[in-house]
Simulated assay, not measured.
Amino acid sequence: MSRRVIYIVLDGLSHSVAHQHMGYLLALTEAQQASYYCLECELPAISRPLYECLLTGATPIESGIVNNAITRLSNQVSLFDLAKEAGKTTAAAAYHWISELYNRSPYQACRDRFTVAPDLPIQYGLFYHQDHYPDDHLFLDAEYLRRQYDPDLLLIHPMNIDDAGHKYSLDSPQYRNQARQTDRILSDWLPAWIAAGYQIIVTADHGMNNDFNHCGILPEERQVPLFVIGDAFSHDSSAKPLQRQLCGIVADLLQLEHAKARCQALLKESS
C-alpha cells in the first residue's frame, strides 16, 4: 500500500540533545505513537554530503559530494527522481542546497526560492538561503505546500538548531533551547499530520560539538536521532537502521521501484 510521507530533517541535532530535551517527540514515544532510534551519520559529518546521503542513499565517498563547497547537481538517483518517475507529487520546504542538489545549480533566489515546476524532481518548493530563517516560518511554508499541492513526498528541513550550535556550541542553553523550541513547533503540526495518516520520519543530518562545529567521529557529532511515526513502521525496538538506508525506507513507503539500501526490520511486512 502506497502512503504519503513527510520526511523531516532537523539540521545539526545531536542524539544526546534530542533524547533528553525534545519533550513532545519523547511523549509520542512514551505513548507508543512513535519509535526512537539512534543513528550514526556517515562521514564527513557535514551538511551537503549528508543531505545527499539522506535523499539518495549514497555515502559521501560514493556520491562525490564530500564537502559543503561542492556546488553541482547530484549524479545519483534521488527520492524526488524516483517519485516523479512513478507519477507522484514532490515538494520541499528546505535550505537552498537541496534545490541545488536536485533541481537547478547554482541556486538563484529570484528564480528558485518559490518553485512551481512539475518537470523538475522537486516540483513544488519553498527554499531559503539564510541559516537564521525562522523554523516556525519554515514549517508554515511546509504546511502551505502540503495544503496547496497535496504531495506524496514532502521534505521539511529547518536550520535553526544547527545555527544555534555554530553560534553557541553543543553544551549551551541556546542550542538546547532551540531544540526545545523546534520540538514545540513540531507539536503544533504533527497531531494533524498523524491524524491524516502520514508516515513521518524525523531525523538529523549530523550533530554538533563544543568547538561550535561538526565533521568528525565524536559521538556528539555522529550520533543523530531517528523518530518514526505511522502504521507502516514495525516499531521494532531491535531494528538497527543506518542513515544510508533512510532513502530506501521512504522509497518503500511510497512503493517506488528502487535498488536502494533498506532496513526491512523497520517496516511492517505488508509495507
Rank of each mutant, 00 (worst) to 15 (best):
Y7Q: 08
V9C: 11
V9D: 08
L10Q: 04
D11M: 02
G12H: 03
G12K: 06
S14C: 09
H15Y: 15
S16C: 14
S16L: 08
M22G: 05
L26H: 02
L28D: 07
T29V: 15
E30Y: 06
Y36D: 03
Y36P: 07
L39D: 02
E40V: 07
L43H: 05
I46E: 02
P49D: 03
L54R: 05
L54F: 11
L54I: 08
T59Q: 08
P60W: 02
I61L: 14
E62C: 12
S63A: 10
I65Q: 02
N68C: 11
A69F: 15
L73D: 01
S74E: 07
N75M: 14
N75E: 13
N75T: 15
V77R: 12
V77M: 09
S78Y: 00
D81C: 11
D81P: 06
L82M: 07
A83W: 00
K84I: 09
E85D: 14
E85C: 10
E85M: 11
A86N: 08
A86Q: 09
T90G: 04
A91I: 03
A92H: 03
A93F: 03
A93D: 03
A94P: 05
I98D: 00
I98E: 02
S99I: 09
E100T: 09
L101H: 01
L101W: 00
L101T: 04
N103Q: 10
R104N: 12
C110Y: 13
D112R: 03
R113C: 13
F114K: 12
F114S: 12
T115L: 15
D119M: 10
D119E: 14
Q123K: 10
Y128N: 06
Q130C: 11
D131V: 15
D131M: 13
Y133L: 04
Y133M: 09
L138D: 04
F139N: 06
F139L: 14
F139Y: 14
Y144I: 15
Y144G: 07
R147L: 14
R147K: 15
D152G: 07
L155P: 00
P158V: 06
I161F: 03
D162G: 05
D162K: 01
D163R: 07
G165P: 05
H166T: 04
K167G: 14
K167S: 12
S169N: 14
D171E: 15
S172T: 10
P173Y: 09
P173H: 11
R176V: 13
A179R: 00
I185Y: 01
L186P: 00
A192E: 10
A192L: 13
A195S: 14
Y198A: 05
A204Q: 00
H206I: 05
G207L: 00
N210E: 08
F212N: 12
C215S: 11
C215M: 12
G216W: 01
I217P: 07
R222H: 06
R222C: 03
V224F: 00
L226N: 04
I229G: 02
G230L: 03
D231F: 10
F233A: 05
D236F: 07
D236H: 09
A239I: 10
P241W: 03
Q243I: 05
Q245D: 13
C247Y: 02
G248W: 01
I249D: 00
V250I: 13
D252C: 11
H258A: 10
A259W: 08
K260F: 14
R262G: 01
R262I: 13
R262L: 13
A265G: 07
L267Q: 04
K268C: 11
S270R: 15
S271Y: 12
